[in-house]
């Protein structure tokens, strides 16, 4: 099954996403949790911990800063950019906004 959780800010999307992901993992499913929020917090709900969530290397920034090569396949991306969360959930953070955009030329 493939699930996307949406809704207004503050309604509990991330808490529901993290809890559903871990519940599915406990039920025996292989679970990939994708945090597509530009302000990623899914790691906290999954139990990775707040500091680790804040530290998680976001894919785009890591590539921009030359710390990572572009991954050739989806599997490589999940292996190379993901993090293990409790109950065996694999967490991938899509992006993170860390600084102001440069002004338009």
């Amino acid at each position: 099954m493939k699930i996307a959780v949406a809704g207004k800010g503050g309604v509990g999307k991330t808490t529901v996403s993290g809890t559903v992901a871990r519940s599915l993992a406990r039920a025996g499913h292989d679970v990939l949790a994708l945090d597509a929020d530009a302000n990623p917090m899914l790691g906290v709900s999954l139990g990775v911990g707040p500091e680790e969530t804040d530290r998680l290397a976001a894919v785009r920034q890591a590539i921009d800063e030359g710390e990572m090569e572009h991954q050739r396949t989806i599997d490589e991306l999940i292996d190379g950019c993901g993090t293990d969360a409790p109950d065996g959930v694999r967490l991938v953070v899509v992006s993170r906004i860390d600084r102001a955009d440069p002004p338009c030329p």
Binding site: M41, T53, D98
Partner: peptide
Amino acid sequence: WQSALTARRVARVVRSR
């Protein structure tokens, strides 16, 4: 924690401009 991490990020972004 979620709110605090968001606040840190927003503050960092504002101060970077």
